[in-house]
Design a protein around this nucleic acid. Structure first.
Lengths: 177, 177
DNA sequence: CCGGGCATGTAATCTGTTACATGATTGA
DNA sequence: TCAATCATGTAACAGATTACATGCCCGG
């Protein structure tokens, strides 16, 4: 699913501005996707040019005007069709595991530090996701709830796995402390 | 870690050709990274231009000649330094979870099918990784072994998680079968 | 007075994939 | 004879990030 189909799906839920789309990416899609304004706005532009969505300008005073995008029939059709395409295998990019692969070249004193930093980041993310719970419970449908739970679950398993790696590294011969 | 640093790390283990680097990506890096020739060869070219690696031409008959790349002192220094940089948060791209987020718009009859396809793919990958075991055991150092085990572990957890999602979807009201 | 939130958008850049081109050998 | 393996490489394209530009309001 590329960004255009995701955006179509988002404004199918309800009409939205580019800004709100970004927020939704940051909230609900943290586990599995992401997008910056630099890709959202051009995508919206193209979707509109192709007649898949329309925009309504909402004039605000004090705040910048909002462009509220709504999905059109043609857009809905394209979106629904995109949901039937087979999924491509997920491409992984895990910097930490890459680093771990070369750990024999990382100075001994730095190893546990790197792992700890990573664990801390994951735990911070876990906290962030837990804070999101009320939002999810009030806005998510059954499948989105499944996404949320699965995402948290995987994160927890990651943390546990990383802590176990930490222990194993600590128990390695020639490891300070 | 971008591809140049990874390549430096690889030929630090032992001198290699671009072809062998690709193979190493496909074998040892399946969990956490990947690269095509279209990125490997240009990277090697640039590393050589920058004086980080050198190449020796091995003339073969019957087969194409091989360009064996060896790391230089300057390259080793760059590589070792790159290992000390803090890790950026892993960016996730999980098509399946994205699809799941929009599952209410996927026809009921297609839902379990998509999940099953995915489970099958993961199990196939699991089989592939298990076949790799002898290779890993004979070539990996302690940290690389940790990578391997962690990768398999995560994959198994993914499969379990996905099967549990499948059950939950199956138990949803209005689900055929 | 300053940082953050609201809100839109572009240009430069980066990084990577896919498809193509070449070409011999080996095994089914 | 056909596909796979060995082996290198480029050009076109895709997809995205980052940094920048603009500008007002609100709270501390």
């Amino acid at each position: 699913m590329d960004i255009k189909h995701i955006i179509l799906g988002m404004i199918e839920i309800k009409p939205m501005t580019g800004y709100e789309i970004k927020q939704l990416f940051d909230k609900s899609f943290t586990f599995f996707s992401g997008a910056s304004y630099g890709s959202i706005y051009p995508a919206l532009k193209k979707l509109e040019e192709n007649g898949l969505i329309t925009l309504t300008l909402e004039v605000q005073d004090g705040k910048p005007n909002r462009k509220i995008y709504t999905i059109k029939e043609k857009g809905r059709a394209v979106y629904l069709e995109s949901l039937l395409t087979p999924l491509k295998p997920t491409k992984l990019k895990n910097d930490l595991l890459t680093r771990l692969f070369f750990f024999s070249n990382v100075p001994e004193g730095k190893r546990l530090q790197l792992i700890d930093e990573q664990i801390e980041m994951m735990e911070k993310k876990h906290g962030f996701l837990q804070e999101l719970e009320p939002f999810v419970l009030e806005s998510a449908d059954e499948f989105q709830l499944l996404c949320y739970q699965y995402g948290i679950d995987l994160l927890i398993r990651n943390i546990i796995g990383m802590k176990s790696i930490k222990q194993k590294i600590r128990n390695l011969p020639g490891q300070g402390k």
